[in-house]
Amino acid sequence: MPDNSLSSTETAEPVVKTKKPRKTIGFYLASAWISLVMFLALFGWVLPTPQWDEASYDNLGVAPFHPSHILGTTNDGYDMMASIVNGAKISIIVSLVAVLIGGGIGSFIGITAAYFRGKYDFAVTMIFNIMLSIPNLVLSLALLSVLAYSDENNPASMTRRVVVLIISLIIVIIPILGRIARGSALQWGSREFVLASKSMGSKNFFIIRKHILPNVAPAILAIGFLAVGSVIIVEGSLALLGIGIPGGASWGSMLANGRGNIEYSPHEVYLPALCIAFTVISFNWFGDYVRVKLDKRESKI
């Protein structure tokens, strides 16, 4: 009775083998850099560096490759290596937390909007459009300058500023990933396997979890990597404008502090600038890799 399946007359088309996209050298470099940054963020404390926020007044603004300060010090005597490590921690935590939470909320809203349609979808689309109508730097700037407002009478603590920064970035991320999730979920939701699942009695959230989410996830992931990059850029920009994280605690903040000393200790500028640039580029490489892989799969389906 079984017709040995794949050798039956219907098998005019050959079985498609999943071919992985070529991993380029850029992909390996990106992986290496992200791993390094992750390692520094998580285990940077094992390195024999001074405290990042304790100045050494004997070594003001020394250049890199100094015996006791491998990456030199700032003009105020802070160890660059320690600052970079600490900055990695803050920058990565801020951007990953913002993208994970914002992406999670955005995806949930986007997918449910696409699945249930109706007035809910209309409202969600409208709100997304409004939020996307303000350039994301401007939006986070407005949120941060108000919600983390700080002066002598109303001092805002470091924690408060970091928390508000993360919240602003989450608000920026929600519509970006939400719109992607909605668009992709609309496409997948109209496939007949969703109707098939409904017709066999599956409940709505079961269908969303089992059929829609797994199919939408790669698209969200691809844009999510790009979003990590944009969030790092926004964080850096805000710090440069003086309303982000203060005191050289993040890479952007190091740039803001070091900018005035560019003539005396240029490494204060180019080290954090390159760290930001490499990290953003690496996340983009990841995002692109996922996207190419996704396109290949899509073209098969």
């Binding site: 007949e192 396997f193 109707l195 098939a196 017709s199 066999m200 089992k210 199919n215 799969r297 389906i301």
Partner: peptide, 13 residues
């Protein structure tokens, strides 16, 4: 139960 027109689209890839 129901069987759909597009055989490919009716199965989750």
């Amino acid at each position: 139960q129901m069987i759909f027109q597009d055989p490919v689209s009716s199965l989750d890839p």
